[in-house]
Design a protein around this nucleic acid. Sequence first.
DNA 1: CGGGAATCAAGAGCAGTGCTCTCGCTTGCG
DNA 2: CGCAAGCGAGAGCACTGCTCTTGATTCCCG
Lengths: 246, 246
Amino acid sequence: MSNTPRGARARARIEVTGAIKDVARAQLAAEGAAKLSLRAVARELGMASSAIYRYFPSRDDLLTALIIDAYNALGEAAEAAHDAAADAGPTRRWTVVCEAVRAWALAHPHEYALIYGSPVPGYTAPVDTVPVAARVAHVFMSILRDAHRGPGLAKPPLPAELRTEAHRMAADFAPDLPPETVAAFTAAWAELFGLVGFEVFGQFNRVVDDRETFFRHAAERLAHAVGLVFPSLPSAGEAPLTRTEP
Amino acid sequence: MSNTPRGARARARIEVTGAIKDVARAQLAAEGAAKLSLRAVARELGMASSAIYRYFPSRDDLLTALIIDAYNALGEAAEAAHDAAADAGPTRRWTVVCEAVRAWALAHPHEYALIYGSPVPGYTAPVDTVPVAARVAHVFMSILRDAHRGPGLAKPPLPAELRTEAHRMAADFAPDLPPETVAAFTAAWAELFGLVGFEVFGQFNRVVDDRETFFRHAAERLAHAVGLVFPSLPSAGEAPLTRTEP
DNA sequence: CGGGAATCAAGAGCAGTGCTCTCGCTTGCG
DNA sequence: CGCAAGCGAGAGCACTGCTCTTGATTCCCG
């Protein structure tokens, strides 16, 4: 991953950098991003506050480092969950990864807020964050690819007005997937984080009680929306549209 | 709405309170919640910073006031859009309200972040925010109620494990709607704000270009997911599951 | 191997923050 | 009318991010 450090100095540098990030991450988990204080982490590390600036040019740069770490941690959690369920069918793997994302978010709410909550002050995420941010999306798309090769992917409907946009997205991100799938997945991707965000940020308080099963069901419906067909109940998501009785 | 102020003093108080909120809202729109400074608004108003505390006991209380205002503004935008399309069918009204939510969020990103982004530091939303936060949900549910009375609502599927939770939610929030509808709506509600949040917070940058039509299509699929049937294309959202050709 | 250069920690200091407390002035109610 | 309550202003406290200077340490290269 990283090249061998040239000397003891470089080694010490990456060590101190890591230590700073560690206590910063601890403060983040304890108090949230808004209360992350450079002076406080310097105090905890027994160094002068000004010394921190040798390692991070500004507070926002420290934040950026933590953001990248958080993206990677979430991506790794998703990948690990996916690999652990490698034997299961695409639909099962889809929900497993969804649940892994939710679990990570609930376990690290402040880090989740850092990457999927409101962006900090006038801060705009640098380009470095783009690739790591795509890791979980890649996991989902690999599932869709598998299903596409196998027998388990249906084409979601695609209205005419969205055709060109869907083709562009597919060409840019997943040329081997049908544009219908890519368009539907993009929506499902955002919707997944809507569900997770509402739970993490407390919007479901006093609304949803059994959030575990509620989320699992929602994730299954998302799986169906992107064209993954249930192995056991081939069309469970699409019961006939029985009219409700008022 | 509000009682007549007892004297000139009370009148001045509500006026100053409003002025503080106005310049605070301006600062919010300009710089974001994190950079909202009591001293700065005091400076802009030509008063001492300590005087602000006569009107808001703390910075967080000012934030809370702005949060309630934001919820109300979004709720009013949704209600206005709904009323303007009162003649249209439920599905059309659903998408109109979705688009109104999106438009308001894009026009007021910082206020949107305040209510649907990461919660501020150790701040927990006081109970006052609960009813106003439900306003847009009420708009959607009134559409579902109309459709339920009329001919346009289908029962979404509901797995057995979610039955009791769905019945509880329905009993608590919409006893006149089928539990299947309430459960599906709760998910769609969160998913809608996932779509909006991803766009407002820039997660769709370099991913979705034609966000207008992308969102409209996603909103229509949400309408279908909650059981609203399209008036023109009764089953457009459910094309037969044609297997994709790898 | 030794000297010049880069790196590092530390301290003082600046401008800004939320918030408290005290002081007088004004207002309005009993 | 009088007194208590409301109000604005100022000073002050404990913080914050960040800069600059100073002195010590370490590294690299001739």
